[in-house]
Amino acid sequence: MTDRGKSLLCPRCEGGFVPADSMPPLGDWNGTPYEGALDAAVSLYAYNDAMKTCLRQYKFLKDAALAAVFSDALHHAEILKGRTAVPVPMHPVRLVERTFPQVEELLVQAGIPYAPLLEKTTALNLGRLGRKERMASDPLFRLADGAEVRRADYVLVDDLYTTGTTLHHAAHVLKKSGARSVAALTLIRA
């Protein structure tokens, strides 16, 4: 008699989301200082119109309630098993503007424990930059105060994989600090 275990979406809306057809191409980064920073990468959904609408409502209309929509999918993601989840952080200024951390909120709603190990150094918006500029940008992350990276397996979690700049920068910081392996899970492959 409860709604437990049922999807939050109607079948029609849910049907609009399609699984990603290709995995993020990590080979693009060969020959850069970030080569090999990421050991594996998985995206759950393709960036189609339904997903664009959903993400727009979540991030730009700040509809935090939508975080729960992806709980099930995240919960069943194989790549999270046996690895410590590390959400890709937002810059504190951006966080106050958005009022909630979009990636952490996804994990909270899915009931996945996570370690906030990273800190964003710049409030710059990558979305405004071209592909080349993105791939050549200065370091975007540093280790958070008091964060302790062990010789363990980590998985970075983010909403979008576009060129992979964000994730490679974040993975680089973790690897440098002693992580054994770093994988990436993104909701969407753009």
Binding site: K62, D63, A64, A65, L95, V96, R98, T99, F100, P101, E105
Partner: peptide, 17 residues
């Protein structure tokens, strides 16, 4: 209404959907 942990006011905050 949906309640969430708001980082702007630092409290549990409701908004109108």
């Amino acid at each position: 209404f949906h309640a969430f942990n708001c980082r702007k006011c630092g409290k549990v905050c409701r908004y109108c959907r």
